[in-house]
């Protein structure tokens, strides 16, 4: 069925000086689905999500969220829309405990200025519980003491705690062992099953075929193909990543 996408990008471009990182890219993410974003190094995956997250706003193109045209200039505006990003390097502060990390930048305050530690701890526990993240011994231990999978789970939990609608995960399993990868992939699937739109960036096609509903392939800053995961094969996706047809030849006149 032709469901309306939660996030839709139409013809977005971004360049850094002379480097054209993205060129007229179309992209969509749907509620309740995992959209995988794949491509070789330098294909523009990170630039694309940083544009959506407001870190490097797009130079041109249209962004629709929930059917409305929007402009995202900075991370706060992205958060306000309900877009959360879990970065590859996690962006957790090792010296802070789990609760502090989950609420960083959005702390709950008891009147007048005091941090409401009890309420934050309660909500953190609830969130971890709802995501079935059960391996954390104490939410008061510094994040430095957690395993890679646990840290990834905290980062994901942090992202979904804020009534987010779209969660973007950048290589969430890159540094993890087999069992921890399993944990995180289950978590990713659970997010989509809870009705969120999930964008998953990964190099690992095995992981992608396990959880993704759709697959968008980027190559040299352009999108070459969108697949339905159930209707395609590893080979087709690999072929698109390495040799997919570009719609615009690099170096040609822009408005060609």
């Amino acid at each position: 069925m032709a469901q309306e996408p939660l996030l839709q990008l139409k013809g977005v471009s971004k360049s850094f000086g002379a480097v054209q990182a993205l060129y007229r890219v179309d992209f969509a993410a749907y509620r309740g689905e995992v959209m995988a974003l794949v491509g070789d190094n330098g294909a523009g995956k990170s630039t694309l999500i940083k544009g959506v997250a407001g870190i490097y706003p797009f130079d041109e193109g249209e962004v629709y969220f929930d059917g409305q045209p929007v402009q995202i200039h900075n991370p706060r505006e992205a958060s306000a829309l309900g877009i959360e990003v879990v970065y590859q390097d996690l962006a957790l502060a090792d010296n802070l405990d789990v609760v502090a990390n989950m609420f960083l930048g959005r702390e709950m305050i008891q009147k007048p200025w005091r941090l409401d530690e009890a309420a934050m701890e309660r909500k953190a526990l609830e969130t971890l519980d709802s995501l079935a993240v059960t391996t954390i011994r104490s939410v008061r231990q510094p994040v430095a003491e957690l395993s890679g999978g646990q840290r990834q789970s905290i980062a994901v939990a942090k992202a979904v705690m804020w009534n987010s609608k779209l969660v973007i995960l950048d290589e969430p399993t890159a540094a993890l062992g087999v069992a921890q990868t399993r944990q995180v992939l289950d978590l990713v699937r659970r997010l989509a099953d809870n009705g969120l739109a999930v964008v998953l960036i990964s190099h690992n096609l095995h992981d992608i075929f396990e959880v993704a509903d759709r697959i968008t392939v980027l190559r040299l800053g352009q999108n070459v193909k969108e697949f339905i995961a159930a209707d395609t094969t590893h080979e087709e996706v690999v072929h698109a990543i390495t040799a997919g047809a570009l719609r615009h030849v690099p170096g040609m006149v822009k408005n060609g």
Binding site: R76, Y87, D89, L90, L92, A93, N95, A100, L104
Partner: peptide, 16 residues
């Protein structure tokens, strides 16, 4: 203050 000292990048991304 602790967050900035622990991981400034994380602090920026958290919107601090």
């Amino acid at each position: 203050t602790y967050a900035i000292g622990g991981n400034q990048e994380a602090a920026i991304r958290a919107g601090i």
